[in-house]
Simulated assay, not measured.
Amino acid sequence: MEKESKQHEVLQRASLFLKKHNREPRVAELLLQYFLHVSRSEFFMMMRDPVPVKVAAQFQDAIEKHAETGVPIQHMIGHEEFYGRKFSVNEHTLIPRPETEELVQQVIQTAANEPITIVDIGTGSGIIAVTLALELPKATVFATDISEGALTVAHQNAKQLGADVTFLQGDFLKPFIGKKADIIVSNPPYIAHQDKADLTDTVGKFDPDLALFADENGLAAYRQIIADIPCVMNDSAAVFFEIGESQGEAVRDLLTEEFPASNVQVMKDINKKDRIIQAHIKK
């Protein structure tokens, strides 16, 4: 009969294995916590407890799969944390990233929980729209996406977290035309197709291309959204975009071209990289 190992031993072996295969060692903590079905605090209190042989085998299989293929652990466990909440994710959606929390925080500060209308464009798993609906209960929140698979996940997340969001299927702002918004927010596809080779396999092979890549050196989505803003904004509107770190000047120029009187700011993320465009525009 195979002998059980203690949790810290199982974790150490897996971390070293991942490091050897140029993967992030901390993945081992997240996966083992998942297979043990325990909270983060319980996990660290159990370090000297034995890990059942069956659990250790499942865990090792998952570690090897991640190391060999790059499949995101979020796809294995089916969720990711965002803004303190657990969101379901799968192959139809981007995996939420910490930088997007900073985008959401900027919107929350601007909205100040007033009775306004917000539209999230290209919602994916719904992280932005659902978070805003929960953090700003006075706001009316809409979200669009062209992907039926993504919208299924977004609906699921809204239902599980108790968020009141109206989802619309279609290309960027198109399904929202006929309605009016005070705040427009989007984390659209912004990676140039020629940059695909520079992505890690965890992103390049497993995140949906539809949510990653855009024509015109990654600017096509911004251009299309900006062109439709006059059709959906009230007399004035605040626009928030997540951007690639080298796109600040280009996206700012697209906005000032369309709205010469707008006040456009390029904002840096916690890593001091250009990450957010915030624009206040008037008709």
Rank of each mutant, 00 (worst) to 15 (best):
T202W: 02
P189G: 03
L254H: 12
A192S: 08
M233Y: 03
G204Q: 04
K159R: 11
Q169L: 03
L219N: 10
A197T: 03
A181L: 05
G170M: 01
F167S: 04
I146N: 02
T152R: 11
Y222I: 06
I229N: 14
G170H: 03
G248S: 14
L212F: 05
Q247M: 15
A221E: 01
K180Q: 13
K159T: 10
V165I: 03
D215V: 01
P188V: 00
L199T: 06
A143Q: 06
Q156V: 05
G244H: 15
A227F: 10
Q169C: 06
Q247T: 13
D182H: 12
H155L: 09
I183P: 06
Q224S: 14
I229G: 12
D235C: 10
L210P: 02
P189F: 00
P189M: 01
G248F: 12
I146Q: 02
T200W: 09
D215H: 05
D209P: 02
L219M: 13
Q194F: 11
A237G: 10
K174M: 10
I243C: 12
E249P: 10
N187V: 04
D209C: 02
S186K: 07
R223C: 10
N157W: 08
T202I: 02
G218N: 05
T144C: 06
V153Q: 02
A197Q: 07
P188K: 04
A238N: 13
F172A: 08
K179P: 07
T144S: 11
G248A: 12
L151Y: 04
